[in-house]
Design a protein around this nucleic acid. Sequence first.
RNA 1: GGGGGGAUGGCGGAAUUGGUAGACGCAGCGGACUUAAAAUCCGCUGGUUCGCAAGAACCGUGCGGGUUCGAGUCCCGCUCUCCCCA
Length: 885
Amino acid sequence: MSYPFETVEPKWQRYWEARRTFRTPGPGDPDFDPNKPKYYVLDMFPYPSGAGLHVGHPEGYTATDILARYKRMRGYNVLHPMGWDAFGLPAEQHALKTNTHPRITTEANIATFRRQLKALGFSYDWDREINTTDPAYYRWTQWIFLKLYERGLAYQAEVPVWWCEALGTTLANEEVIDGKSEVGGYPVERRPLRQWMLKITAYAERLLEGLDELDWPESTKEMQRNWIGRSEGADVLFDVAGFPDEQIRVFTTRPDTLFGATYLVLAPEHPLVDTITTDEHRPAVERYRRATAAKSDLERTELQKEKTGVFTGAYAINPVNGEAVPIWVADYVLASYGTGAIMAVPAHDERDYAFARAFNLPIREVVSGGDVSKEAYTGDGILINSSSEDREIPGIAERGFSINGLSVAEAKRKVIAWLEAHGRGEGKVNYKLRDWLFSRQRYWGEPFPIIYVDGQPKPLPEDVLPVTLPDLAEFKPSGTPEGPLANATDWLHTTDPETGKPARRETNTMPQWAGSCWYYLRFIDPHNDERLVDPDKERYWMPVDLYIGGAEHAVLHLLYARFWHKVLYDAGVVATPEPFTRLVHQGLILGEMEYTAYYDGDGHPVSAAFVKEGVHTETGEPVTARKVAEDEVEKRGDGFVLKSHPQVLVDARSHKMSKSRGNVVNPDEVVARYGADALRLYEMFMGPLEQVKPWSMKGVEGVSRFLNRVWRLVTDDTDGLAAAVTDAAPSKEQLRTLHQTIRKVTDDIEGLRFNTAIAAMMEFVNAAMKWEALPKAVVEPFVLLLSPFAPHLAEELWQRLGHAESLAYEPWPAVVEAYLEEEELALAVQVNGKLRATITVPADADKEAILARAKAEDNVRRFLDGKTLRREIYVPGKIVNFVVS
RNA sequence: GGGGGGAUGGCGGAAUUGGUAGACGCAGCGGACUUAAAAUCCGCUGGUUCGCAAGAACCGUGCGGGUUCGAGUCCCGCUCUCCCCA
């Protein structure tokens, strides 16, 4: 008889729900116990897509659920909530196609997700469920925006967006593919639009420093550091020949190379371009600027192999030597980075070098050590060709200066000092991090708490929040760069609550990231309509002790959330400077392993070694891929080959799950076939939590067999217990096995090594199956160990073992060291580091006895006889090694 | 190009500080039960060689070196691969 999950699992889900087993009292609740330690374990809440839950979701969710259940049993107050990040583009795109209100789509999707999550038996406190699209929630998102605005951290700027004339709407980056709209393939262009920006750059330094204390994956911290992109250098001011009122400010990380600057480059959007371009060059510059407008930043900088640019006809004056250098316009310089202008030092910068070569501009070596006739030299060295001490620099200094002979670091310091002394620049720290573009021309997002009175933006007072979304009859674009909210005439035109003047509402909405920036705070106090979060509750529960979610959020979500948290910290709303103490990313789950063979046009098999991107690497002919069954291939050397054509390699790998590939595993089907406990257990048994790993339905069967064995171990065919389960006293061996398991499972849960914890429980069951009697004193602790992993099965067994209450708050089994002691010890015996025998000795045997026993072993003596014994090594409890010659 | 992972049987993986490589599971093979199948239970299962057998030897953690009594683990140099950034 096997574990009847189809009746047991719903039974316990109903039980937990009816008894509110996982309701978590907090400060202020009558049944709250402030003497218990707290543990806040958080999942990245999902976007409820129409596709329903993916097997990737329960991976992290099971891990956190195991921790939550374990910590409860260890006597912690555990906060373990779930909610919905429900604003976003897909629901709006669906609305455009079907004219269904996004709220309806969203509610239906949430209902599916909630049903699916509940069917997996997660111990969430569902009383704390939140939804970012609920006005009672986004009221506080708007409130935080007002705090940002008050603190000067929200401002408006002209920023280019993708505008599609044919669709009459702006598009998000992901809606633009190869310079065309994803929908319809219409042309798009970059067009400046007035938008809200958040000044995250003001927090760049603190966001960088804060990383050091966090228990996060080093790779994620490094990504955030790179994203912030701190660089030290200098701002340098160049005069423009013939324009005494104009100066060009450039940022450089290499002020030491200033004498090697042979031209300047302005971004095409730079405001000075119009002013300084000569009439002769104006038509070419205008043409160039129009061409640039169609390109994304990525195309301008990364994808572009050929450097492009045009000369303006104007010259700048290098402040350190008075030289006139030509000013060019080129799109490899971005208006948004630094000052939108650079000094080009082709001898010591790769991109400048490529540009100078393409346009035949001079290359002047100023740092020795490389060969600048071949390539740019970016390494350290001694400064050369860098002196103006023999002459006057008109308008700047009577005498120039020299940095010849200095190292790069010394030269940097001296140049910065000179620039500062002569008012031509200063040392500066620059960040790659840009301010956060915080508005979208969309309907399904948080409205801004902003109105325009006499054309000027004005924040609404807190007491009129939330500004709710109007109901629209249809979700068509407005036909202008404004979003669909511009169509909601009744909503759009309002009055200023302070002055009674007519006002117009902001038609932008906030981006999807907004709601997820602070949701972990709302879980602490989800129904508070006076405050975002009660300070006592916040101080008790924060920070989040463990946060598990995908690595795809390593930068944006986690950086934005940290930014808001620091702002709220400064505003006195929260008491901790960082929100997430410990962060773990679950690894991607790939589809089942697939074998793919390739065939040419004539149907002959082609070895995978000759196939790249669907094309034969030698003939250039396209090949067709065909899936082959596992029994048609075999391992040969490093790869797999077709059994029928052993010289033909096939691709053997798992692919990311995708609809188009048809390898998506639906958790509902797994639950229907094997039960929720089996799904949970399998997802944890696959391998280390953080690792990428392929799905295997056979593996699910394996863990399901294990659960069935546990079931048969404890129960009989009726609704009672197996005959072997008794009240008898356990044997020494049984206690040792149990306590070894307790120790292993406890340590492994603490270290998030769920795969090896499960292996240990499997070993326990393998041993227990052989025992004639199974004392309750042994089986009950085991059921408790299993309960965080397979809670439904464990609750059912616990009940059958005679307990009236849920095991959710039973104390976690404790290891008794005395039970772990072995009477005998197995030792490996090596001769010259090679294993020759294993011996069994009494646990209390001394070194001499052990060495004598080891030498007595036949197979050891064979290797010692006739040799000189040089050394005897004994590592207690582990190994004996005789070194002979 | 830069940064960060990773590479262990047919497959997923284990080996917590340098100490018996391959735990646990899958797949495979053999057996028991069964009219039969499924389920279940028992046994074997890295490779090669020797041996009737018990057993033994050699090789083996991507490749090449090194340190050490002893290296999957530490050091140096490579190859391949995944992720992120550019």
